[in-house]
Design a protein around this nucleic acid. Sequence first.
DNA 1: CTACGATATGGAGGACCACCCCACTTTGCA
DNA 2: TGCAAAGTGGGGTGGTCCTCCATATCGTAG
Lengths: 177, 177
Amino acid sequence: MTRMRADARRNAERIVAAAGAVIAEQGADASLEEIARRAGVGSATLHRRFPARRALLEAVFRDRVAVLCARAEELLDSADPGEALFTWLRAVGAHAVANRGLSASLMLGSECHDMIINAGEGLLGRARAAEEVRPEITIVHLLKLVSAISLATEQDPDGPAEADHLLAIALDGIRPR
Amino acid sequence: MTRMRADARRNAERIVAAAGAVIAEQGADASLEEIARRAGVGSATLHRRFPARRALLEAVFRDRVAVLCARAEELLDSADPGEALFTWLRAVGAHAVANRGLSASLMLGSECHDMIINAGEGLLGRARAAEEVRPEITIVHLLKLVSAISLATEQDPDGPAEADHLLAIALDGIRPR
DNA sequence: CTACGATATGGAGGACCACCCCACTTTGCA
DNA sequence: TGCAAAGTGGGGTGGTCCTCCATATCGTAG
């Protein structure tokens, strides 16, 4: 939010756009050099603006994570707290699989990470109060599970279907007996 | 098993040993150059003997995977088929967490992958016959789940404990309702 | 509207990597 | 013991990430 010069802002936007495209094609460990090249920017510019790869991933996925957070907000009004939580976790998984690299970015302790944890906390709290979820399970556990599955199926031929199935299996484990 | 010259065999063994050490320290994406250096061998030798990183990982972990397969064999005689399967999956997870990089190697379609799938198949079949596991679940699902969790917790501060907990949660989902 | 300091830029270069080529050395069989 | 076949590793190629710094651009104060 610091005042940025107009050209700096423009370049930052081009970098994020290019990064989105390249990461979608090649995954989260795509070449930063290639991203800079495709953004029409020197590599030094990219490195100054985003000192670590993590910072770039964060910028790329921030708004998509915001969408998931908004969805969590909506689901807080749903009648069935347990189902609301499951629905949301599935949505997180689907997003992570659809956007290559997002799951990697969710694992890193970043701003995105915190945003999504806060969003999920509410849903989990409600589900727990309704005794639809075992009490010792935390939102961090759940998100790690979702990220892990997405990451593991990322370079699989039939990724999305597989991921959803695995997620369904794993999530059955969180209900109270 | 083709006849190898004595020096070639000796160098191959040194490379595998060095790779084991370096991978344990730095993870599955350790530098091959560093491995060659530590084995006292030119990098060309390493690349000729192991044309892909996967081949080297396989050689490093083959015997550890064999241990897991043997354990599966033992557990086939256990009285409780469901518990036997869970015990084994937990052992697989523990091994994957203890040996950095093993989980990555398990995910790649390799000889190790096939070995461990064959080993698990027997345990799963028994558990399924005893109706301790939902029928649509495959051994590939289970191993992917275990690998994913290990991989996800690999660079976590409290990895092992976390991984075991997540695994316990996920595995609760495979029991019939 | 101009001049000037703060800000931003990107090419060049250093350190590292995977992987390959090929002149040389070692091996083990006849 | 001779010698062809097998094995070796230094050095090269082209890629990566990241940093320095001379240069170009911006936005404002005058």
